[in-house]
């Protein structure tokens, strides 16, 4: 029983972080209809920002305030100068934008490797492995904080998408780009803002992950993979779906690790992904309707 509870708690806390990674991706996928295969790499960049600030004595939670705007800017620049120009170009493959994100991901990884080498870096905090116990179950403090911050960000995103003009424009663009354009929405600008927001959100995830993990240039790839699994689980463009998707993935990985074996951790996530693609195309969004 203790093992089961501990596994569930571990999965839930990790799931919160996954949700935050997924929200950014789901926004981008929903609005632009492309998968951003540089998503994890953007998180990696944010983690390096947290690392550099940390060497100057800044707490990773405060580095959120620097990393998020920086990544917002990076996302905006990428969308504006690298992705949007492709829409106008006549090409054989519509996937050119996706392929472009692969190239961007490589450039981000290699530029970081160039600057910081391949060495493992880590953020030192006094609370990295701080824990509290509830009924014999251990809770990692930074992961618990990350979980609640992730929830807060999701709530904020939800409110933003429902209540603000910009948010409504984003949703309109996600639903029907042509109609949105006809309604006078500058969809070019919307895609730019969305990419910026997506990047900022994954930057937040990176800063929250930094105290409990470590940092190296190649960490982007696996997280990109997780991000698209979450997004497909949750349904494109659905913030609530992303939360459910993130937590599902976190739980599935944890339960799989405990009851199947840790080496199956990644396979479980991928298997769920394939199952959802086949049996529940559209993801949890089909069930939750938001």
């Amino acid at each position: 029983m203790g093992i089961l509870l501990q596994t569930i708690v571990a999965g839930l806390l990790k799931g919160g972080l996954y949700a935050l990674i997924g929200i950014g991706m789901t926004l981008i996928m929903g609005v632009m209809g492309i998968i951003n295969l540089a998503h994890g790499q953007m998180m990696m960049v944010a983690m390096y920002i947290a690392y550099v600030l940390n060497t100057m004595g800044v707490d990773p939670y405060f580095s959120l305030l620097v990393a998020m705007p920086t990544l917002f800017l990076l996302g905006v620049l990428i969308q504006k100068y690298l992705l949007n120009p492709l829409i106008k170009v006549d090409t054989i493959l519509p996937e050119n934008q996706v392929l472009m994100t692969v190239g961007i991901g490589m450039v981000l990884t290699e530029v970081i490797r160039f600057i910081f080498k391949s060495d493992y870096k880590y953020v030192t905090t006094s609370y990295s492995s701080a824990t509290f116990f509830l009924g014999g179950i251990s809770f990692n403090v930074p992961l618990t904080i990350a979980f609640f911050i992730a929830l807060a960000f999701t709530a904020a995103m939800f409110w933003f998408l429902i209540k603000t003009d910009l948010g409504r424009s984003i949703r309109a663009t996600a639903q029907d780009k042509d109609a949105a354009t006809l309604m006078g929405i500058n969809t070019g600008r919307i895609t730019v803002v969305t990419m910026g927001l997506g990047a900022a959100l994954v930057a937040a995830a990176g800063c929250l992950l930094a105290p409990v993990y470590y940092i190296f240039p190649d960490l982007g790839g696996p997280f990109t993979a997780k991000a698209f699994v979450i997004t497909i689980l949750g349904g494109l463009g659905s913030t609530v779906g992303a939360i459910l998707g993130g937590i599902t993935l976190g739980m599935a990985e944890s339960l799989g690790a405990t009851y199947l074996g840790m080496e199956y951790e990644d396979i479980v996530g991928l298997a769920i992904f394939v199952a959802v693609l086949l049996f529940l195309p559209g993801g949890f969004k089909r069930l939750t309707k938001v």
Binding site: G2, L209, E253, S254, A257, T258, M262
Partner: peptide, 16 residues
Amino acid sequence: EGYQAGAIDFKPILSK
């Protein structure tokens, strides 16, 4: 138990 290098969370296996 074997694991893939780069895991975030070893708690499931460690609780076992």
